[in-house]
Design a protein around this nucleic acid. Structure first.
Lengths: 235, 235
DNA sequence: CCTACCGATCGGTAGG
DNA sequence: CCTACCGATCGGTAGG
């Protein structure tokens, strides 16, 4: 396992207690070869994400994944200890990337968060923040090449307890920024549902879109976001 | 395949074009033996529903199901042509039962639907109908011994195209009664989201509860229903 | 990363 | 419904 590879930034890959065995280090580090190794690993994760989403984890064979990146059947196990570790890599990388992009989306949107706002301005501000969060969430689930988060949402069952724990932490990180927004909306009367249940119901409404959204159809992600806002939020 | 068994009321069981081969009919029909046969079939469907929900369709072996009802590995295939037919039986039976119970819940609730109502009364009436529909939907997904609908919601991928078509029809039947209620709420300004998207988002919010609801926890199905109403509907 | 391989499991069937 | 079985597939490994 290569700790320098982007994927491995996630806390744990395997379920064993002592990770990071490391290959021999006797050569100049970070040459082209090492980076290509990382690329192949990323290829595997991307192919796995696509197949896991389309056919499900259990119905996807490691041979399917190997074929998709032009490898032979045994080769994925040079990069990943097990099929389960590949699933975990997909999910962890998906969450890591989603959290990063969410931070960015918020930073771009909340330039006014430090100034003094009157009541009406602050009502609009929290509504705008929720819009940004929802819009970004749709993007992450339904945007081009977004297979990671759908896999994360629908393949929890196949994780080990350990992996579940770390994924749950990543998910809490992702949701952490939603709660204050929902609380502000509740306090200002724009949200009438208790925040805790509201969070669960709203995420449900959004996450379910993976099941029915069709990019070729009429509604785009902006339309979806506006519909969701109209459903949940009063003025 | 026994066409008299309750499960087989569903339009199709297998994917082949010519179903219903039928066993020799040379004995008095509908004896105890035949009914016991039906019971065993129902046992299999119930056990399959439970296991499919817990482990997923692909991760459940027909041996698991056989063991759960005290049969040997080959015996389920006396009752069902294939594992896929068992899945279809679970889903079709789940929907048939859900539709039936939904009709009943509506009948008990809408005694006033035929009388003349003033504006405020009709506003309250459509809100109450939505409450009944949501409450019933939670019951069907989260109530005691309700494994059928969760399986139906999360195992579509494993159906054949033919089976998908008939399931889609059953689902339309189930949802048919929701649309006029949502339209009335939209017309009266209690729902601000376009009806078509509202239906998808609302079902998402409800269906996702299968992932997080814990019967041992604080909130009950009534609490859930009230939270959902507060989230979606204005007065 | 490939070759060659293994043990285990799985859906399904024949014959009673 | 059981017994006994089969062919196929699968995750994973040794050795290079």
């Amino acid at each position: 396992m290569n700790l320098d590879a982007p994927i491995s930034a996630a806390p744990e890959m395997s379920d064993t207690a002592t990770p990071a065995v490391a290959k021999p280090r006797g050569r100049p580090r970070k040459t082209l070869e090492e980076r290509e190794d990382g690329n192949r690993k990323n290829d595997l994760v991307a192919a796995a994400a696509k197949l896991f989403r389309k056919k499900g984890f259990d119905a996807t064979s490691t041979r399917d994944i190997a074929t998709a990146v032009g490898m032979r059947s045994g080769s994925p196990f040079y990069h990943f200890k097990s099929k389960g570790d590949l699933l975990y890599a997909v999910m962890a990388e998906g969450m890591r990337s989603a959290i990063e992009k969410q931070q960015l989306a918020l930073k771009n949107a909340s330039f006014s968060s430090n100034s003094l706002l009157n009541l009406e301005q602050s009502r609009q501000e929290s509504r705008r923040l929720l819009y940004v969060l929802i819009r970004h969430h749709f993007e992450v689930m339904l945007g081009a090449g977004s297979d990671f988060i759908p896999v994360m949402l629908y393949e929890w069952r196949s994780l080990t307890p350990r992996q579940r724990t770390t994924m749950a932490q990543l998910q809490r990180d992702y949701e952490a920024v939603w709660l204050p927004v929902l609380e502000a909306l509740f306090a200002s009367g724009q949200l009438k549902c208790p925040v805790k249940l509201a969070r669960l119901l709203i995420f449900g409404a959004l996450n379910w879109s993976v099941q029915w959204f069709d990019a070729k159809k009429e509604a785009g992600l902006d339309d979806l976001t506006e519909a969701a806002m109209a459903l949940f939020i009063r003025d």
